[in-house]
Design a protein around this nucleic acid. Structure first.
Ligand SMILES: [Mn+2]
Ligand SMILES: [Mn+2]
Ligand SMILES: [Mn+2]
Ligand SMILES: [Mn+2]
Lengths: 217, 217
DNA sequence: TGATTTTTTTAGATTTGTCTAAACATTTAG
DNA sequence: CTAAATGTTTAGACAAATCTAAAAAAATCA
């Protein structure tokens, strides 16, 4: 069994290695963990000894199968707790991440299976991220980033790739919540801002915001 | 804010100082914490520095008002989580304590108030223990231990003073659950075993078991 | 290619919570 | 009231996770 700290390292390494199958760099981990490269080096050795990552000096790290499953399990718990907080305790989607950061480390397989059942086996969390099943499998729904769409394109908002409360509150205020149908009406040349219609209303989001809105169409 | 370890010390000191207003001894804390007296001495100094306990060398410790409130708050969280686990996730009363030992350290006042509301503000936990409100107030219902009753006495089971899974499963099997009405039909001279009727059935519990069953009558 | 910059690792401390062994204080018993 | 037993504290070490500063390796650039 891993410590909370080790679990957080595994989770961050997993997220950093998403899509690209390349090794994850020490500095990248340090930045995400809000710690120093020296601390990461120390921890990396420990995780390698425990066979949770493969590591050669100066070569970066990759999760082993065991490490990957451990990481996915923590993510599963995080997302299920987020669903609980929003669906059952009426938190807003911008309020749940930090609490889930703590809850994800509660260690009881039984608890999490029962929570899953209590929530009726949700497939995705309040931010649209998929919830892995207890074997670690999940389908990643194909999406496109809003800033890559063209005028006239339309689709459904099915997730966000940025989870900070200010960003989420901004979307909420604009009515850009999960499942909403949007259509691109204009792309402003000057700065790449995107104008779109949601619910008959025209709104504008900056390129930076558009980048983090995931659309299925 | 305190560490998990500090929180556990506070909670144990609170429990050990219940009823008797005497100072709590180092060795008693060590036993409950499953640690050594030397470690307790170290921690005691730290808690005293933080003004959570009053402490004079060799004199044992007492919680300050701040310390007592901190302890009660952890107990509040523990008991609310136990209610959640039993009422919402269908755990048995003997399965929830260990999980609640972890959940009680989750730090979010908002979370716990919403949980309280979600559970409809329960007054007691699955073992009959009272749940303090957010100001730390709770009524301790008067009770008598089953082994102190006389033949012919009757009353309701309103709590247990022992929370180990084997004990709780034993009671469950005998039908001795919270709220049940019992009447003492005999007390065996030889070993103090108690014979009683529950639900028309006659059953026998040892003196040791009777000691931990709390009766209101 | 050789120099410079960036990235990573090591060396040596620090903090938290723990331990054993030994010293010291208090309580109990004769 | 002294001696033994019990309870508590101190001294010194250790493991986990972190840090700063400096050394070493790799990548980039001229
Ligand atoms: Mn989250
Ligand atoms: Mn999420
Ligand atoms: Mn409990
Ligand atoms: Mn309880």
């Amino acid at each position: 069994m891993q410590s909370f700290t080790e679990e957080n390292y595994l989770k961050i390494i997993y997220h950093l290695s998403q899509n690209n199958d390349e090794a994850v760099q020490t500095n990248a981990i340090a930045e995400r963990m809000q710690t120093k490269a020296a601390s990461v080096s120390d921890m990396i050795k420990k995780l390698a000894e425990k066979q949770l990552i493969n590591y050669k000096k100066y070569q970066g790290v990759k999760l082993t199968i065991t490490g990957k499953l451990a990481a996915i399990n923590i993510i599963r718990k995080h997302r299920l707790w987020e669903v609980f907080l929003v669906e059952k305790l009426n938190f807003k989607w911008d309020e749940v991440h930090d609490i889930a950061e703590d809850l994800e480390h509660i260690r009881s397989a039984d608890l999490i299976e029962r929570l899953d059942e209590f929530l009726s086996f949700p497939k995705s969390d309040p931010h649209g991220d998929p919830i892995p099943d207890k074997e670690g499998n999940f389908d990643s729904i194909p999406f496109r980033k809003l800033n890559k769409l063209k005028i006239g394109d339309e689709g459904l908002i099915m997730g966000v790739s940025e989870h900070s409360p200010p960003f989420l509150r901004h979307l909420e205020k604009l009515g850009l919540t999960l499942g909403r149908k949007v259509r691109i009406t204009e792309i402003i040349d000057f700065d790449g801002s995107v104008e779109l219609t949601v619910d008959q209303k025209k709104i504008i989001v900056s390129r930076e915001v558009a980048k983090h809105i995931l659309i299925r169409h």
